Computed example of a mutant assay.
Amino acid sequence: MAIRLHGREASSAARRITAARILEEAVARGGTVSADDLRGEDPTTSLKGHAAGLTRTLTRALQEGWLPEGIESPVQGIGPGYGKVQGYRVHADLLPLFRAAVLSQPSERRTRLSTEITDSNVTWDAALASKTLGVYKLTTDLDAASILLQRLAETGLITETTPGNYHRPNIRKN
């Protein structure tokens, strides 16, 4: 099924599962992403081995001295310890750090939100950003949506008019 929003189609097809996507989905959803959310419409999609990129990155960061010795992997599989994972979780104490880093990078969430903002004449806040991304099946909690809006303001696409409220610079408030 496809949804039309502002004349564009939002595909409900599953996106490719990668370590980066696991991390992005977890931080955008408040720290946890379920296996079903990653699999999308195909419940037979395997998640086996997709978190390996995170392990390789952590290993390199430890070797280079970027992270302190003994730090655990910031992303943990959720499940009984055998069989299929039920999802992934980012440690709560590391969530703010990863949110700032991950949501600052180019992503489908940023691209979709940028396009929606460019095509609109409304004042944006975290609730509207989260709702809009939800149409594209890019679930985003309010904290993550707020960070995305702040990052877009840093690019000059939008201007913060009052705390937490943004609009395009060329749009006048009534």
Rank of each mutant, 00 (worst) to 15 (best):
V122D: 11
Q76F: 01
P96I: 06
S146P: 00
L67W: 09
V90A: 02
Y82K: 12
V85D: 00
L142C: 01
V85N: 05
A127Q: 10
P68D: 04
A127Y: 10
G65N: 09
I117H: 07
R99E: 13
E72G: 13
A129G: 08
D119Q: 13
N121M: 09
G134T: 04
H91R: 15
H91Y: 08
G79V: 07
A100F: 04
V122C: 08
G65A: 06
L67D: 00
S114F: 03
G134I: 02
A101R: 13
D119A: 15
A100G: 09
G134V: 01
E72L: 13
R89K: 15
W124Q: 07
L67M: 14
W66V: 02
L138N: 07
I71F: 04
G70D: 10
E69H: 12
T123P: 00
I71N: 02
L138D: 10
I78M: 13
Y82I: 03
L113E: 08
I71G: 00
S146Y: 06
V90C: 09
Y136A: 13
T132S: 10
V135K: 14
D143L: 10
R60H: 12
V85F: 02
D143P: 03
E69I: 00
L62Y: 03
H91D: 11
S130E: 05
E64F: 07
P106F: 05
P106G: 07
A92S: 13
V122Y: 08
L62T: 14
K131L: 10
T111Y: 11
R110K: 14
S73A: 12
T140W: 06
S104Y: 07
P68C: 03
N121W: 03
S114G: 12
T132H: 02
R60L: 14
A100H: 12
V102S: 06
G79S: 10
T132W: 02
V102I: 15
P80T: 10
R109S: 05
T140F: 08
L94V: 00
R110Q: 15
Q86W: 09
V75N: 03
A101M: 08
L128E: 10
D141Q: 04
N121F: 12
Q86R: 15
V102N: 04
K131G: 09
G83C: 05
V135N: 04
T111N: 10
W124L: 06
T140E: 07
K137H: 15
S104P: 03
A145Y: 01
D141G: 03
E116W: 13
D125N: 15
E64C: 01
A127S: 12
F98K: 03
L95M: 06
G70P: 08
E64R: 14
T111H: 11
A127I: 07
A144C: 07
F98N: 07
L62C: 00
E116R: 02
